[in-house]
Amino acid sequence: MSEVKSCAIFNGHELKDIPVINPGDWFGKTWLVEIGGSYWPLFLIVEADTIQDAIDELAGNEKYGHNIIVSEDDLADYDAETCNYGPSGQVIDLDHLMIHGAEGTETPFPCRYFGDGLPKDGMNPTKFCYRD
């Protein structure tokens, strides 16, 4: 299957073609991750059990993790005792990160998945099962 994308309503605005990280790996528990710091934020849907798990999935993602992982050139600007760390011990910067969704619900941030092989009108993430 090709890359899974999502669409959702956020504060009354329709978001389309949102990349999905970790589709099908946590029973459809989706979170909307917003990475700011520019004119237009980057939105991602991350499937994970908790907010912390969503941060870990993002930090470990090959394509999008660089948005929160601190580059080696900038590590001196971070205090090793108070900074945040990703799942592989990398320093991560969460200053421009927001995560939207309701803890303790089946689908913390409701959305629909789209992609090759999925129904034209999309699929509820709780029904999606990723297979290579």
Rank of each mutant, 00 (worst) to 15 (best):
D56F: 13
S88W: 12
A80N: 09
G65C: 06
G122S: 03
D49M: 10
G115R: 00
D77Y: 13
E72K: 14
G36N: 14
G12L: 02
G28K: 08
K16I: 15
V20G: 01
I55Q: 06
V33C: 00
N84A: 15
L97A: 06
V70Y: 03
D74F: 11
L94V: 06
T50E: 05
L75H: 10
D95V: 10
A76W: 12
L15V: 07
E47K: 07
E103T: 15
E103D: 12
N11G: 09
Q90D: 08
R131E: 13
E103C: 09
K127D: 15
L118G: 05
E62P: 03
Y130F: 13
V4W: 01
N11K: 13
L75T: 12
S38P: 00
C7F: 09
L118K: 06
F27H: 12
G86S: 07
I21M: 07
A76N: 12
G117C: 08
W26K: 13
E72F: 10
V91S: 02
I51A: 01
I35P: 01
V33A: 05
Y130M: 09
N67M: 09
T105N: 06
D53T: 02
I92R: 09
E14G: 04
F43V: 06
L44W: 03
G86P: 02
Y130G: 07
T107F: 00
L58P: 05
E106R: 10
P41C: 06
D121M: 10
S71T: 11
Y113L: 11
F114G: 00
K127F: 10
K5G: 04
G37I: 04
T50R: 04
G24T: 07
G28L: 07
I92V: 15
N124G: 06
T50Y: 00
T82E: 09
Y113W: 08
L44N: 01
A8P: 01
P19Y: 03
D116H: 13
G36K: 12
D93M: 09
T50P: 05
F27C: 11
G37H: 07
A8V: 09
D17F: 08
L42C: 08
V70M: 01
T82N: 09
A59L: 08
F10Y: 12
E3F: 04
F43K: 10
E103F: 09
D56M: 05
F10A: 00
A54F: 06
D79M: 08
S88I: 09
W26Y: 14
E47W: 05
D74W: 14
C7G: 15
Q52M: 11
G104R: 15
E14S: 08
L15C: 04
H96T: 15
H96K: 15
N61Y: 04
E106Y: 01
G115Q: 05
V4T: 05
Y39S: 13
E106T: 14
D53K: 14
C7Q: 11
R112H: 08
E103P: 12
G101I: 09
S6G: 15
W31R: 04
G122M: 04
N67K: 11
D116F: 14
G89E: 06
E14C: 08
L42V: 13
A8R: 02
L32H: 02
E72W: 10
K16P: 03
K120D: 14
N61F: 06
I68K: 00
E81G: 07
E81D: 12
V91R: 03
D49H: 13
D121H: 10
